[in-house]
Design a binder for these strands. Structure first.
Lengths: 232, 232
DNA sequence: TTTTCAAGTATTTTCGAAATTCGTATGCTT
DNA sequence: AAGCATACGAATTTCGAAAATACTTGAAAA
């Protein structure tokens, strides 16, 4: 059932993006039209339209006249994404702390609370739950939402998603996750205090997550660009 | 005539992108399929594929089930782009000066030379010539090419193009341009010397170009989001 | 054995017709 | 007259068949 007022193609785009980000469509996987057509129940043209956008977003790779595949993963890519995120998150957080108003602060508190409560309710395996992942993303977004720069915010969101794919990918195999509650709380407090330390805290938060991923799940990120996984 | 090994859709994408960036398709203009079909000589689906990518690149805006229009321009957008560019260019130039090797330096010198010679040959109205615009873009790209960050380089290139649209837009109406030769030379020299001043110079170069645009051509950038221009 | 070529199959790409949706004009009701 | 519903024409969106391209198989030549 498609969203009213929106095109079917847009609907497929969103479903497909979620499937790539959640690794339901595995990194490096060849995307065959016949299979995709069954999965999403749309025509060739509509599929290509969605694929074209995902290519521009860096989630799918077009291979000349040989179709499409899910963007591969690699440790180099994760580290590149991490550096780029640090640059943008620091800048946006810096601006947000300058421009942020009451509504911005309230939204941060609300987002943190929702994430925190769900986490407490879920216990140790919170990081495997898609709903928590969404609240976590919302919390991080709330921090920078007063950045007042559509261009930077858009880029930040795309980078967040792409990096998040690595985390989601590994969460299926991880036993236990480093406890991030403390870090989130510290980031929030420093941010609301307009304490410049917040910038270093968020940088450390991002970098340590990546280091952690590379250490404990690096083997999952072997380059899949020449992959053979052929289903779709 | 389409590029061998590449899809027709890709070809149309490139032509269309160039048309948006050169303002052959004016900002805010409604894009009618029948007209586009004649201009590019392709089918609906192929057009939509190209349009979908341009939407993701921020050069075209999709309006629900009411078609597409060229991304509008506004002073706010130009200033937002400028801030984002400064952030990325500084970071990439900083990295390039650390990582840059002989080939990187050679490429900068070569790019500068080509731009400089053509400029001398063209005289006062160099900025109106598409070929010079391409060489200018190549020079700026050569500076950061040793950045070794595909993610940041890609974002930089997209931002450069979008900002360039404003310059191209105004160049049709400008009488004379601020002489940039000196600035380019200074940026190049500082960069090759690994002098940190290069970062400030490039920032000033970017910001002054924008200030200049807003001052002398700001009236061209009145918001076109609710435009009525209806041809295509 | 390895290479080259050719024919056949699988897959992707492109097209334009058909279905849907939007915008507008017209008539009806209050 | 203002508001609302309806119907018509214009534009977009979606579809699957047809064309183009890539891949596979196998046989002939080096």
């Amino acid at each position: 059932m498609k969203t009213k007022g929106e095109t079917l193609g847009n609907d497929v785009l969103q479903r497909m993006r979620e499937d790539v980000l959640s690794c339901a469509l595995e990194p490096g996987m060849k995307l065959r039209f016949e299979t995709l057509r069954q999965r999403y129940d749309v025509s060739f043209s509509t599929l290509r339209e969605a694929l074209a956008r995902l290519v521009a977003e860096g989630l799918v790779v077009a291979e000349g006249q040989r179709g499409f595949k899910v963007a591969p993963v690699s440790i180099a890519d994760l580290e590149d994404l991490t550096d780029a995120r640090v640059l943008l998150e620091r800048e946006l957080l810096r601006r947000a702390m300058i421009n942020g108003d009451d509504a911005w602060e309230a939204n941060i508190l609300a987002s943190y609370h929702k994430m925190d409560r769900l986490q407490a309710r879920l216990g140790e395996e919170y990081y495997k739950v898609a709903e928590w992942s969404a609240l976590h993303a919302a919390f991080h977004e709330s921090l920078v939402q007063a950045g007042h720069s559509p261009v930077l915010l858009e880029m930040r969101a795309k980078l967040f998603d792409r990096a998040n794919r690595y985390r989601r990918m590994s969460s299926q195999f991880r036993k236990k996750w480093r406890p991030k509650e403390i870090e989130h709380k510290a980031i929030m407090d420093a941010t609301l205090d307009r304490d410049a330390k917040a910038l270093d805290l968020i940088e450390r938060h991002i970098r340590e997550t990546t280091e952690n991923l590379v250490e404990f799940a690096g083997h999952l990120f072997e380059d899949t660009s020449a992959s053979t996984s052929t289903a779709a």
